[in-house]
Design a protein around this nucleic acid. Sequence first.
DNA 1: GTGCCGCTAAACAGAC
DNA 2: GGTCTGTTTAGCGGCA
Length: 679
Amino acid sequence: MFQCAFSSSVLQPHSTSCLFKHLFYHSATPASQKQPEPIYSKKTEIQRQTVRAHSVKLFIFSALQVARQLLLQQQQQQQVSGLKSPKRNDKQPALQVPVSVAMMTPQVITPQQMQQILQQQVLSPQQLQVLLQQQQALMLQQQQLQEFYKKQQEQLQLQLLQQQHAGKQPKEQQQVATQQLAFQQQLLQMQQLQQQHLLSLQRQGLLTIQPGQPALPLQPLAQGMIPTELQQLWKEVTSAHSAEETAGSNHSSLDLTTTCVSSSAPSKTSLIMNPHASTNGQLSVHTPKRESLSHEEHPHSHPLYGHGVCKWPGCEAVCEDFQSFLKHLNSEHALDDRSTAQCRVQMQVVQQLELQLAKDKERLQAMMTHLHVKSTEPKAAPQPLNLVSSVTLSKSASEASPQSLPHTPTTPTAPITPVTQGPSVITTTSMHTVGPIRRRYSDKYNVPISSADIAQNQEFYKNAEVRPPFTYASLIRQAILESPEKQLTLNEIYNWFTRMFAYFRRNAATWKNAVRHNLSLHKCFVRVENVKGAVWTVDEVEFQKRRPQKISGNPSLIKNMQSSHAYCTPLNAALQASMAENSIPLYTTASMGNPTLGNLASAIREELNGAMEHTNSNESDSSPGRSPMQAVHPVHVKEEPLDPEEAEGPLSLVTTANHSPDFDHDRDYEDEPVNEDME
DNA sequence: GTGCCGCTAAACAGAC
DNA sequence: GGTCTGTTTAGCGGCA
């Protein structure tokens, strides 16, 4: 009767439940588990999980197909056996079905959508079960409702025929109209409830709709509903829209929602669901209130009108003036099914965008919280790079952000990132590999930071209160080298710090003291009396002399660097996955000038490249073949400039980097006047 | 254990 | 007198 769709399966379950069990067996026991593997590794584990996820997806998809088949068969059997509504008139089997019924497909969620769900999320068996049950219930209820609607249509047609023969019967006509209104109201309720259902799916992460894509046809949701529930639902759906209009003083011409919320239920339904009875003149009863307000405040300004074109979604009709636009709006976009549907689509688009925004905000908050919360955690194992941890361990840092973000306890078992974020997020595991190292690797490895390092991560450091993993000396040098004349006053150095790093917008006394201390302490910084006072320059010879031999023959450091690359890689992957998940094509790869974490990771890689080169050049037994960096990223060999002229190498990077299209925004920022109000 | 290094804090002096 | 700038010293922690 049934045949398993799995290619490797030869089982032919005889019943639905048996097939479900069989399918679940596929999902629960992937092939990789059935065949013992001689070598266990992370890679095989990932493959195993992938196979399992794929099996689960196949399982639920197959199960849904089977459920649909069953329901269709039941429907056919009902039609054959005459199990129909007793009031149903079977004389007219092929009745004209209006558009709203055409939307009532038995599939509450289309296969494409289901596939979309399955491709995006790995569902737990409980979720699968709930989804299946919901799907079945919805389909059954929709069938019942569809039959009911057909019955109503038939009755209406019959009565109309009778009226044609026997003359008008106002009472009956009114009754029929009332019934149809009630039914249409129910249809509306179904649509709204289905929207809510889909929204809840989205919130649960089970369904993702691309912004701007009306991926969800307006399929009504046939579920038993309570009027109060419906009202609450309607308010919930419309409140965001109304609030948006209010907040942005952006008065939409579609006052459907507002009217509905503020009106009583009967008027609402009559207004919405009887568009032909209530013409646009009725719209002018409600809408003009707001439109007139809007037009009084902003004459001839309308959210749906701009540049002589109607901005109604999918319209773009040319309207020479505002009056013609209004005329066009009232004529072409009257309150009918099409406009209502378009309005709902737009609402969904807006809601989806809001969801996306909220999601990204939550993600940002989690990231920021995570970066700050580490100070409350016990010191972790040896950590490769002092990327973010130094901020948490230094005393000033803890003082720097006393208010700070909520110190949500973060443990590896309780990631902050939402569950619905998808498979690839910056997990606490990957982030926790960063730990307390006070040394700034740039100095420690005697690899001067290049402006590219800072420029690539400029956006990150500008916005995140993360201590840059560079020594004061390196930063001061960088600030001076970035200046046109390669010299800066102390105040200009201060400004560079605050401009480039959000971290240095706090505790000015502390780090300014440190800057002065470093300027005085290190011989590489030369004070030059100038016309406008004293300026500081960099003596590259002295700077390169500082600790010329470092990290040579340090296996632990090499280990750290390797593990640090292990940190970089998931960071990049997570970023890319996050971007891809959010459908941000511009940042699909970290190598495309991503100004944030991707470049941060790449900059770290570059630093580590330099360090590794240094290490490999000084130590022969450092097992370069084991270096993951060399395996993944081609090492660009760059000799450490010993000649002061060659030492200007990073300086040339300044020019090239800043003139690269990728860093145009950096240039803009540098051109900005110094913001003294930062502190 | 020792020395080096980086960071922080503080004291002090001179200039504005 | 207050602020800014520059110098110096001391202490601490991390690391080799």
